[in-house]
Simulated assay, not measured.
Amino acid sequence: MSTADPTRTTALTYRTAVDTDVPALVALVESAYRGDASRVGWTTEADYLGGQRTDERGVREVIATPDSTLLVVERDGDLVACCHLEHRGDHAYFGMFAVRPGLQGGGLGKQIMAEAERRVREQWDAKEMRMTVVSVREELIAYYERRGYRRTGELSPFPYGDERFGIPRRAGLAFELLVKQL
């Protein structure tokens, strides 16, 4: 990654991830959610979860999944964000959303989400976008609500004991389903 000014407003480019992107994507996702580096941005999960958010095997599985796209977002060739889109019948799933921590809070995420929603409508004729968010992440859930997503109250258990999803630092974690009509 270059050391160019991260506040510049050059247009974003979007492409599908390939295998050679995997190490950089893992680093991006980890930096946005875990450890001290994640505290630069506002999406950190470091207070709730330790350990890893993803690994190379997990990212490769996402890339290889049929009806799935791991979208790489670049600015002047620099990786600035990513998100996973998966076609699931009449809806699409949105996940693995990460924006470089130093670039969070400036509208980049909003722009990327709008592009992701446009793509799933046009490519898959998806009528709804769904995502799951750790239920204690009130600030993050509020962000998605401002983007038109609604809380369903539908919870699924956090996979305690499966360190591929992180090491919980508190009890009572669950995933809440959020949905948006497209």
Rank of each mutant, 00 (worst) to 15 (best):
V18F: 10
V22M: 01
V136A: 13
E128C: 14
T152F: 09
D5H: 13
P101I: 06
E122F: 03
Q104W: 02
Q104D: 07
M1A: 09
T10K: 13
A81W: 00
V136K: 13
E30S: 04
V26P: 01
E115T: 08
G105R: 08
A126Q: 04
M1C: 07
R100D: 14
V134R: 06
A92E: 02
V62I: 15
E163G: 05
M129F: 09
Q111T: 15
R169W: 04
Q181R: 14
A27H: 06
D21I: 05
G148M: 07
V73Y: 00
T7Y: 15
V40Q: 11
G105I: 08
S156F: 11
V134C: 04
D90C: 08
R34E: 03
S135V: 10
E122Q: 13
T10R: 11
P6S: 01
Y14L: 09
L177K: 11
Y149L: 10
T16K: 12
A171L: 15
E154Y: 05
G161F: 06
A27K: 10
V134E: 02
D5T: 14
V136P: 12
A24N: 11
A46P: 04
D78K: 07
R34A: 05
V40Y: 01
D19L: 12
I112Q: 01
L12E: 12
V133F: 06
K180D: 02
D67H: 14
R150S: 09
R169I: 04
L140W: 01
L28W: 03
V62S: 01
R34P: 00
E115Q: 13
Y143R: 09
R170D: 02
P23N: 08
D125K: 14
T132L: 09
G102Y: 08
V179F: 01
A32P: 00
C83S: 06
Y144R: 15
K127V: 10
R100Y: 10
D47L: 11
H87Q: 15
E176K: 06
L155N: 09
A98Y: 12
D78G: 00
G58D: 08
G35S: 10
G50C: 08
P23A: 12
Y160S: 03
T152N: 13
T20M: 14
D90M: 08
L28F: 01
V29I: 15
R34C: 10
G166V: 09
L177H: 02
R169G: 00
Q181I: 11
Y33T: 04
M131I: 11
L25A: 03
F165D: 04
L182M: 12
R34V: 11
A114W: 06
T44K: 04
